[in-house]
Amino acid sequence: MRTRGVWPERLFHAFTGGAAWFVLLILLAVTYSMASGGWLAFKTFGFAFVTSDKWDVVNGQFGALVPIYGTLVTSAIALIIAVPISIGIALFLTEIAPAWTRQPIAMAIELLAAVPSIIYGMWGLFMFAPFMATHIEPWLNDHLGSVPIIGPLFTGPPIGIGMLTAGIVLGIMVIPFIASVARDVFNAVPASLRESAVALGATRWERLCHVTLPHTRSAIVGAIFLGLGRALGETMAVTFVLGNAHDLSVSLLMPSNSIAAAIANEFTEADTALYRSSLIALAFMLFVVTFIVLSIAKLMLARVERNMGRTH
């Protein structure tokens, strides 16, 4: 009986270990393919490929600074918008909303996550961008354009498309992902903790701030970085509303470009080896940026768990 039980255990161990190593091999293969494909660009331009804002197809000058900048700025705007709204939605559904409304609202939020990104892009281009150009951007120009320090961020022609519009659309796309994860995490808080807080006389606000949020802190950070990963790699929606211009500008109202949008727009037009290599190098830079962001997320999660007294 003991011998018969050993082989299934060994097969299970080998299968699960092989699956884990297979994922690692795929990751290494993807890294190698992008690095080798972009080697010509890195060899030609060196570190200037990362620091240069030139993108001159005719003269064969390529730099990744503008797409990297556009990717990071639009993703940051998306998180600034999405994180408080998502956590607010999750807290409302788990702590405040009447029981009969929770499931329909939760289903509606999850359906938003299933909407194709190209639909968000078309809505952003034909509906939201004109609204921004007519109502929001002129107001930002008039009221914030002259404010010291932050004024340059909100000056520019009110054309509707740009980094601010793209960031808002990305934020709307990210909200369902963060809100769904946060809702599941808040529902997993033991009822005994809530009941203990109520028994001690805590108000609803105190229960949320001192019980629910601290207990789920690490999972919420993970959900936020999950949303950030979604924002960093988004292509079609950003392509519609970002403007696809290789221009470096401080103003959030000006058109820019992102790594994913640049690759999607220009890869079929890459007619030289250096041009194709530069686009593949952009993909490698997106991979590196995502890897760095996720590494920071893991470090933050580890620090949060240490502060909460947990050990691995």
Rank of each mutant, 00 (worst) to 15 (best):
G162F: 11
I259S: 04
R276D: 00
E9P: 00
G121E: 04
S258A: 15
M285I: 15
L193R: 00
M173Q: 08
F177Q: 03
N265D: 13
L65G: 10
L11M: 14
L164G: 03
V115Q: 03
L294K: 04
G309T: 08
E269P: 04
A133H: 08
V198Q: 01
I280R: 04
Y69L: 05
P8M: 09
A197Y: 02
R306C: 07
G243R: 06
S36R: 14
N265G: 05
L79A: 09
A106R: 03
T165Y: 05
S117A: 10
V73Q: 11
M122A: 13
I175S: 01
L253S: 09
L65S: 10
F284Y: 13
H13S: 10
S146W: 12
A99D: 03
L232N: 10
S146K: 09
F287R: 05
R102N: 02
Q103E: 12
F45C: 03
A231K: 07
V73H: 11
F186M: 01
L40N: 08
S33L: 11
A78G: 12
T216Y: 01
P214E: 02
T134I: 13
N141F: 07
A197T: 02
G63D: 05
V58K: 11
L208K: 02
G171F: 07
F15A: 14
L228R: 04
T203K: 01
L25K: 03
I87L: 12
G63M: 08
G38V: 13
N244D: 07
T101Y: 08
V250E: 12
G171S: 08
L153T: 07
S180K: 01
H210A: 02
V23E: 09
S52I: 07
I77R: 06
I80V: 15
I263E: 02
M127H: 10
F154S: 04
T3E: 05
I77C: 06
L286W: 07
I172T: 06
A191H: 05
G233A: 11
M254Y: 14
L170Q: 13
W123N: 04
Q61R: 11
A261D: 04
I150V: 15
K298L: 05
M107Q: 09
R10I: 15
L140C: 09
A114C: 09
L112R: 01
G46H: 08
T268K: 10
A97H: 01
L226I: 15
G171Y: 05
G243I: 09
A99M: 03
L125I: 10
L228G: 11
A219P: 00
A41H: 06
A41Q: 05
L65Q: 09
Y120R: 03
V147N: 09
Y275K: 02
P116V: 09
I161E: 02
G243E: 07
L112P: 00
V250L: 12
K54L: 14
L226D: 06
G38E: 04
L72E: 10
A114E: 03
L140S: 06
E9L: 05
S86R: 02
R183L: 01
L93A: 02
A76I: 08
L282F: 14
A113H: 05
